Computed example of a mutant assay.
Amino acid sequence: MGEATQFTIITGSATDEKMLCQGPAFLSVAAVVDFELTLSMPSRLTADTGVDALTHAVEAYVSRKANPFSDGLALNAIRTIGRHLRRAYADGGDIEAREVMMLAATQAGIAFSNSGVALVHGMSRPIGAHFHVVHGLSNAMLFPAVTAFSVHAAESWYADCARALGAATDGDSNALAADKLVEALRALCQDLEVPTPQAHGIDKDEWFRLLPLMAEQALPSGSAANNPVVPTVDEIQDLYAQIYA
């Protein structure tokens, strides 16, 4: 999905910081999106990139910079990913699942390129930089907890996401649907065998030693400011602590 966005990441090797670069200069003139190139992807990479695409779509929809153009693309991507990500993970040769997941990932990329991402991405970058966790996996580690932190500030928007994902119905109240989204994300990550930082092998002492620095680094990109709840540094530290184990 990066091929259809105006964003790229550069890692500062001296500081272990991932820096976000954005603007029209980073946007491709054209992109070839061929799902057949994904058929050989291993299941772990399939899961991580699939959750990354879902994160792009949900954060694009609940972003403070969301707009009608990004909304339609985001909801369609959520709907598609909800029906096909588990299939692609279980069977990498499932051609139908691979094709529609590729389309959904591209739609989600265009969506967030027009509305921005939010706190999951802001907190994900420091994990990747300091502990060399791949981007989609660090997003997946954070996604349920950060969503639970944020839902109360934008229940109707998260409820729309829950209904698109297939986790809630039109008969559910917005509050119930938003809660069901959090539970659905937890269940999805469990089904896709997303490890905690601890299970991934990250040292506990090092994780907690770096919490203050990671929390500070999560803010400058602006992603956190797009979140329905704009967090304090202390709240970001608390979220990092929650997800470790």
Rank of each mutant, 00 (worst) to 15 (best):
E3K: 12
A4V: 08
I10W: 02
I10V: 08
I10K: 09
I10D: 03
D16W: 05
E17F: 03
L20S: 00
Q22C: 11
P24S: 10
L27R: 13
A31S: 15
L39S: 06
R44T: 05
R44A: 06
D48F: 15
G50S: 08
V51K: 10
T55S: 11
A57K: 05
A57E: 12
V58L: 13
Y61A: 00
Y61W: 11
S63E: 13
S63C: 11
N67M: 12
D71W: 10
A74R: 04
R79H: 14
R79P: 06
T80Q: 02
T80V: 14
T80W: 01
I81V: 09
I81R: 02
L85Q: 07
R87M: 00
A88I: 13
A88C: 14
A90P: 00
A90G: 06
D91S: 09
D91C: 11
I95K: 11
E96W: 06
A97G: 00
E99A: 15
S113M: 05
N114C: 10
S115G: 03
H121R: 02
S124G: 04
R125K: 03
R125G: 02
I127R: 12
F131C: 14
H132C: 10
H135C: 07
S138P: 01
S138I: 01
A140G: 05
F143N: 07
A153L: 13
A159R: 00
A162K: 02
A164G: 00
A164M: 00
L165C: 13
A168M: 03
A168Y: 02
A168D: 02
D172Y: 15
A177Y: 02
K180V: 01
L181R: 04
R186P: 01
A187C: 08
D191H: 12
W207R: 02
F208E: 15
L210I: 03
P212L: 10
L213C: 04
M214E: 05
A215N: 04
E216P: 07
Q217T: 01
S221I: 05
G222F: 05
A225H: 14
N226Q: 07
N227M: 02
P228K: 05
P228S: 09
T232M: 01
E235K: 14
L239F: 08
Y240Q: 09
